[in-house]
């Protein structure tokens, strides 16, 4: 990533302006973790952090896809439904006796295909991403109930082994395979954004689509690509979710798209596009996870407090973005 010289303040510490949101998120995360450690003895156990990762690996993968979309200035509301649909399709095909080796590629193809179609609609017919992906959201959710009205359990050997395998140290701390997969996705995405033409075009379009067009960048192709990537990430997220729950349920991950958007924004990506990093998104997801853990540890608080805190944070971060003025014309 390019270092920038646009700094605030003078002196030995040069703070690149566009890194402030990410740094703020990092500081917030450390503060919340500090609060947890000081309040609850068990919080300092490293397994607490690992559990946050385990519980949120699918969210992280989906948020990475969303980061691409938001960086272009778009939005993808279909992700929650696509996650559910992917899990449903997997569960249903496995129930009919298809081997895992056949189910995986099929399940992983559906999401990107839907994303590709939505991208085409957005680009060729110049439709607002909000509406196009809203249509995708209803379609995918409808497909879930079309497949089955009730939850389908998964008993496939591959699935259960993915679900139960622990990768850990001798002292008993562990993460699931899903966490490893999520971080592979994060690494690939970070590389793509920083070191490929596709990635740089994503930033350019988010900065100024008209200019990007006049500079001769493949705007249409890139926009279609980001929705396809988001679809792929949702599909991977759906598979990870089905590893996690070992079932497919028609009403799972309802409203998840909003959590994902919140994580991306708290992670410092500007909703109008052009500024943000995958690393920020990782932090954003962790912030959401740590809030949940704190409230669980407290025990007396209703889980809805999670939503209230997220609401407050989201608001604060949008204000922060506004104040430091990441609004390039």
């Amino acid at each position: 990533m390019t270092a920038t010289q646009l700094t605030i303040g003078r002196g030995p510490v040069r703070l690149p302006r566009r890194h402030i949101p990410v740094l703020a998120t990092l500081a917030l995360l450390l503060v919340m973790y500090g609060i947890g450690v000081s309040q609850y003895q068990a919080f300092s156990n490293i397994q607490v952090v690992f559990n946050v990762l385990i519980d949120n690996s699918f969210l992280l993968v989906v948020a990475v896809g969303m980061t691409f979309v938001i960086l272009t200035g778009g939005i993808d509301l279909s992700v929650g439904s696509v996650v559910a649909m992917t899990a449903m399709v997997s569960a249903s095909l496995l129930e009919r006796g298809l081997p895992a080796g056949a189910v995986l590629p099929i399940a992983l193809l559906i999401g990107p295909m839907l994303g590709f179609l939505m991208g085409c609609v957005i680009h060729f017919f110049d439709i607002q991403p909000f509406i196009a992906t809203l249509a995708g959201m209803f379609f995918a959710r409808g497909m879930c109930t079309f497949i089955s009205g009730s939850s389908i359990p998964i008993s496939d050997g591959f699935w259960t082994s993915m679900s139960q395998t622990r990768i850990g140290d001798p002292r008993g701390n562990f993460v699931s395979i899903s966490v490893v997969i999520a971080f592979v996705v994060v690494a690939v995405a970070a590389y793509t954004l920083a070191y490929t033409r596709l990635g740089r075009n994503v930033y350019a379009i988010g900065g100024n689509q008209q200019s990007a067009l006049l500079m001769g960048l493949p705007v249409g192709r890139t926009k279609i690509a980001v929705y396809t990537i988001s679809g792929l990430c949702s599909a991977i997220g759906g598979i990870l979710l089905s590893f996690y729950t070992l079932s497919g349920a028609p009403l799972i991950a309802v409203g998840m798209e909003l959590d994902v958007i919140a994580a991306v924004v708290i992670g410092g990506t500007v909703l109008t596009g052009g500024s943000g990093y995958v690393f920020g998104t990782v932090l954003g997801v962790l912030v959401l996870g740590v809030i949940q853990t704190l409230i669980t540890f407290d025990g007396s608080l209703n889980s809805w407090w999670t939503k209230i805190v997220i609401g407050g944070l989201l608001f604060a971060f949008i204000l922060l973005q506004r104040l430091i003025g990441i609004r390039y014309k």
Partner: peptide, 13 residues
């Protein structure tokens, strides 16, 4: 694209 660096604006694409 004002959000990209000077170098990138010269060479993007």
């Amino acid at each position: 694209c004002a959000n990209l660096s000077v170098a990138e604006n010269i060479f993007i694409g």
